[in-house]
Design a protein around this nucleic acid. Structure first.
Lengths: 184, 184
DNA sequence: GATTAATGCGGAGGCAGCCTCCGTTTGTCA
DNA sequence: TGACAAACGGAGGCTGCCTCCGCATTAATC
């Protein structure tokens, strides 16, 4: 049938890694809307080469952030503290978003767009959050009428706020708001 | 001392109004990040003329949205229902932001930047919200440890969420979250 | 080591948006 | 009607997005 795909050429592999490294640094320093031309310059490769490896911004974002997002999708309920697991997860999510300005917006966009190269990673995260939420509703104190979309919107909104309040701890507002999700 | 400024020339006045009209429509239809060149094209004037009247995007935004923002700054506590006044205000703010995609982001940016032409309008709004919050803390059920910055961040975050969930009512999440601000 | 074909690279170039500058036009007032 | 300030148009410089294609590099084969 189809031949096994050849391994990447040495120069291609080298450039691929270079781009990843510089993109990660640039995204962390300047946010996810950093210009791709700038990343190419940092990596001392041409813009054409960058696009050959990562045909869209989301493809590059997936390569840089995919692992971190998938890690957010591996959280599992800890026996006996469903509420704590959920709030911990929210905390991790917000921390991640604070490290990369623009992440909240990007995650929402990727969730809404099935064609995005980031869609799968974000969907995995979505499912994990749904799992944690269900658990906290059954064994914890979270209101049963909270929907997973509410939770994700809350999570991204929290992350978005955190991006706009640099240097200040997001915990206070976060705790306040999660309180709103609890049964009286 | 200084002579009174001459009134605008007829053509200038005409163009000024034209730009305002088209900008308002464009901002409502496509969000606050609509290209200024596009607004100029809609108004059938040159980009240079647009910049002559509104040297920055925020100047144009202030001319278009300033009144609406200042209206949000005129809310006054209704006798005997401090909580209701506060939640009503939040509702108005979110409604406004839903009508103009990008408003939440813009308001936060303008608040943080004293040089922005929108700064004053946003500051007025900020002060009103602070007033309503204080009242709801003294005469209503809002927790006393909620800070005005928390409230504004909550308001903008809510608005931001609403922008990203087109067509769905923002009331549910909004009510959930405001619950978090209440005393137990 | 030489040959060759595919793979990958560079960068020019088209497009759009931001913003400035300046020569020309228009409105206003005497 | 003439003169002057005010306002206008739009070219042009800059940046960023993205595509395309001629040329260079690599790796497989002899």
């Amino acid at each position: 049938m189809t031949d096994p795909p050849r391994p990447m050429r040495a120069d291609a592999r080298r450039n691929y890694q270079l781009i990843l490294t510089e993109a990660a640094a640039a995204f962390a320093e300047r946010g996810l809307d950093t210009s791709l031309e700038d990343i190419a310059r940092r990596a001392s490769i041409s813009i054409g080469t960058l696009y050959r490896h990562f045909p869209t911004r989301h493809a590059l974002l997936d390569a840089v952030l995919g692992d971190r997002l998938r890690q957010l999708a591996t959280a599992r309920p800890q026996h006996g503290d469903a509420d704590g697991t959920l709030t911990d997860w929210l905390g991790h999510f917000v921390a991640e978003a604070t490290a990369y300005r623009g992440l909240a917006e990007t995650v929402l966009a990727a969730l809404a767009d099935p064609d995005s190269r980031l869609h799968a990673s974000c969907l995995a995260m979505h499912d994990t959050a749904a799992h944690l939420l269900r658990d906290a509703q059954q064994h914890g104190t979270i209101r049963s009428d909270v929907h997973i979309d509410d939770l994700l919107l809350l999570a991204t909104a929290l992350a978005w706020s955190a991006e706009h309040r640099p240097g200040q701890p997001a915990d206070r507002l976060s705790n306040l708001l999660v309180d709103g999700l609890r049964r009286r």
